[in-house]
Amino acid sequence: MVSKSDLIEIRWHGRGGQGAVTSAELLAKAAIDEGKFAQAFPAFGPERRGAPVVAFDRIDSTKPIRLRAEIREPDVVIVLDPTLLSVVKVTAGLKPGGILIINTRKDFAEIEKDFGKDWKLALVDANTIAREILGVTIVNTTMLGALLKAMPVVKMESLVEPIKERFDRIAEKNINVVKRAFAETKVKE
């Protein structure tokens, strides 16, 4: 929507309670700590546990963000929950050549069968990583690691302080899932 800028617009898809809003917030805080300009906000709709939800990030490394509306044409879409793929059109408005990051066990060929080849795909089995490290399949921080692999919007170390502030005793485990997801995410150009 806005040309001539370093603006990156990200849309998170999750289900209520999975922490999509928290992911968006952690990312914006990390970007702001790096001196960048950023916004994180939830979709302004009813909030119900288990129902599909979206959250948004805007990050601009050079200038203040002067937009107060939902993101309609994101550069990046992140899907926390594979069961959403058949429920929500997650690629709606995704810019041609944009990045689609999915928590899934499927491979590129299977995902391309459903979503075509218009997007740069990044896939990770976040459920397994989260289950093994956190003991629960809450994948919001795991998917931050996948994002950084697909697009280095912030430095990984910048996430450490926001994660510590948010998760306190379980911060270290959440930092570990970010690192492991970064290592295991497969990115197809």
């Binding site: 968006a24 950023a38 916004q39 906000f41 302004f44 107060r68």
Partner: peptide
Amino acid sequence: CDGFYLTHVVEP
């Protein structure tokens, strides 16, 4: 302050 448009946004 506009509800949500300001109140619910994380920003610098």
